[in-house]
Amino acid sequence: MLNAKRAELASTPKMDKEIEESHRAEIELARLCAADMMRCGDIDGAIKALRAVQPWLCTVTEFGSAVLLDLAMALDAKRDPAATDLFGQLSRSPNADVRALAKMMGSVDDAEGFLKL
C-alpha cells in the first residue's frame, strides 16, 4: 500500500521554482490587477485573475506563497471554503510573514465557530 502511494505521488506533476519563474511576468501582472480589483471592491475579478495563474504557483517559494496568500485572502472575503485549504498549505511557507498570517487566518474560522456556540 505504501509503495502504491509513493508511485502515485511520483507520477503527479511537481510544481517547481523554474515553472513559476518562467511565468513570473504573467503572475506579477495578475497580482497587480487583482490588487487593483480588490481596492475597487471587485473581489470576484481578483479571484478570477489569481486563479488564472494558480497552476504556476508553488507554496514552497516566497513569491508563490505570497501570491497564493493574496488568493486565499480574496477567497476568504467571499467565504469560500477553498480559502481554508490554502491557508493550511501556506502555514508551511518559507516566508515567515506569510506563514504567520496564514496560521492566523486559518484559525479565525475556528474562533468564529466557537463564538457561535
Rank of each mutant, 00 (worst) to 15 (best):
N95G: 13
L71Y: 06
A111H: 12
R99E: 12
S107P: 11
V98K: 04
N3H: 10
T61W: 00
P81S: 15
N95F: 01
D76P: 03
R31H: 10
L86H: 09
M1D: 13
E26Y: 02
G106F: 00
E28G: 07
I19R: 11
A82T: 10
I47D: 02
T59N: 11
E8G: 09
R31Q: 10
R92G: 12
M15N: 15
K78D: 13
A83K: 02
L117N: 07
A74H: 00
L115C: 10
V53F: 00
A96C: 10
E21H: 08
E28F: 04
V67K: 05
P55C: 11
A96E: 10
L32A: 14
N3K: 12
S107V: 13
M73Y: 09
E18G: 11
K48V: 10
M1E: 14
A52C: 12
G113D: 13
F87P: 08
A100N: 07
D16V: 04
L101W: 08
A46L: 01
P55R: 04
D70E: 09
L57W: 00
L2N: 14
A77Q: 09
T59E: 05
D42I: 06
K17H: 03
N95K: 07
L71A: 12
M104Y: 08
M104E: 13
N3E: 14
L86C: 04
K116D: 07
T84A: 15
R99D: 12
G64Y: 00
A102E: 00
A46N: 01
G106Y: 00
E20K: 03
E62Y: 00
A72S: 06
L115G: 01
A10S: 08
G41F: 02
D76R: 06
D110V: 15
L115W: 08
H23G: 15
L2A: 15
K116S: 04
S22Q: 05
E62C: 10
M15W: 07
D97W: 04
K5P: 06
R6P: 11
